[in-house]
Amino acid sequence: MVNTLVEPSGGRVLFGEDDVTTLPQAQLRRRVGYVFQGIGLFPHFTVSENIAIGPRLAGETLPASRIADLLNLVELDIEMASRMPDELSGGQRQRVGVARALANAPELLIMDEPFGALDPITRDALGEKVRELHTKLGLTTIMVTHDMAEALLLADRVLVMDKGALVTDETPRALLKGEGGEIAQGLVAVPREQAERLAHMEDMPEGGPA
């Protein structure tokens, strides 16, 4: 909704001072970095062409040094620049997706379940990386996830939506202390219980029930 891929059925979304529906669509989208589960790399472009697409649309050419910097930021080898997307692994592709979203030096980064399709190890590593970039580049990042553990570990603020309405707006620490209401606590309970069971399992003798 922020980048108007979906039209709001009610209410307003403000970007800075402006209602997003009043801003020129293409320009607005170039100010917002967008990363989503499907990744959507352009299969007929090389990695570097994919990364450079945003500036290209604005009529600029992204210098090779900047592409190298962006690849560096997402921890991809500089040699990847000339590869085609179908030569990359899922994790590598989403790294390129993040680099593409950052190429325009966006004011806002939207991540819509960005790591949903990735294996847990890649997922964890990429999550950490994005959080690091967020801090390093001073970004505003909105990340949508179903995984409360991911939200608690990465976010400064956690907002919980239920049936289309906002029910919670708390820090991770406050949520862990039991605040934020019933629905939020239900979500927090899942990773907490899993963590406790894992810890318990470590204490049990070999072969015992969980």
Binding site: L5, R29, Y34, G38, G40, F42
Partner: peptide, 9 residues
């Protein structure tokens, strides 16, 4: 890919 095309503006 089409969503990405819209997404990059």
């Amino acid at each position: 890919v089409l969503e990405a095309a819209d997404g990059v503006g």
